[in-house]
Design a protein around this nucleic acid. Structure first.
Length: 193
DNA sequence: GAGAAGATCTCCT
DNA sequence: GGAGATCTTCTCA
């Protein structure tokens, strides 16, 4: 298992989004390791993307998107849910990839406890669900994902061949015509089809 | 300082 | 299939 270097993230957001599929998200939580394979993502850019938080310029909330690549951008939405993003593009250029769904690999018992359900297929198939399953909150905002800390993304030893499909993004009104959602074809942990 | 909108999930019908 | 939950952030006065 190799942690993805910062150079991986310092590229075009769409490229990073596609290549994040099949990678492993690792969460160290209270001495326990929770791991999941990334099976669904969405790309959010800056000034050319009206659906992005960074579209209207830099604010206190979205400043992480303008910062260095390879960091976690966590925000709270709808009074109930956290969403986990990974920042992309070189420092100063806004961009992020929203992690929409995971396939649970290890620490499944803890995920069930956090989510209060026994349905494995229902643990991490949505942005708000996976943050709850991995116990991710605003405390993880701005965390560096290229270091072996509490949260990072790595490349598995076995690189399986995956089929990538794309579609329009979900739940956004502005910029809905952009097909910037990418997911692994025929994977049952993808949130919707 | 108030009001509105939001990259969602769950429960109920 | 639809509405409610319920917090943060931005915008405007």
């Amino acid at each position: 298992m190799k942690i993805l270097p910062r150079s991986f993230y310092a590229r075009n957001t769409l490229t990073v989004a596609k290549e994040l599929l099949g990678k492993h998200l690792v969460r160290q939580n209270q001495g326990e390791k929770i791991t999941g394979k990334i099976v669904e993502v969405e790309a959010y850019r800056g000034f050319d993307d009206p659906a992005s938080h960074a579209y209207k310029g830099k604010t206190i909330r979205n400043q992480v998107m303008f910062g260095k690549p390879g960091c976690a951008y966590v925000y709270f939405i709808y009074g109930n849910h956290y969403c986990l993003n990974v920042t992309t593009e070189k420092e100063g250029v806004p961009g992020a990839v929203l992690i929409r769904a995971l396939e649970p690999i290890s620490g499944i018992k803890s995920m069930m406890k956090n989510r209060k359900t026994k349905e494995v297929a229902n643990l991490t198939n949505g942005p708000g669900k996976l943050t709850k399953a991995l116990n991710i909150t605003k405390a993880q905002n701005e965390l560096d994902l290229t270091k072996n800390g509490k949260l990072f993304i790595c490349k598995p030893d076995l690189t399986e061949t995956i089929e990538i499909a794309c579609s329009t993004r979900i739940g956004v009104k502005a910029g809905a015509e952009k097909a910037w959602r990418f997911y692994i074809k025929n994977n049952k942990f993808v949130s919707k089809r």
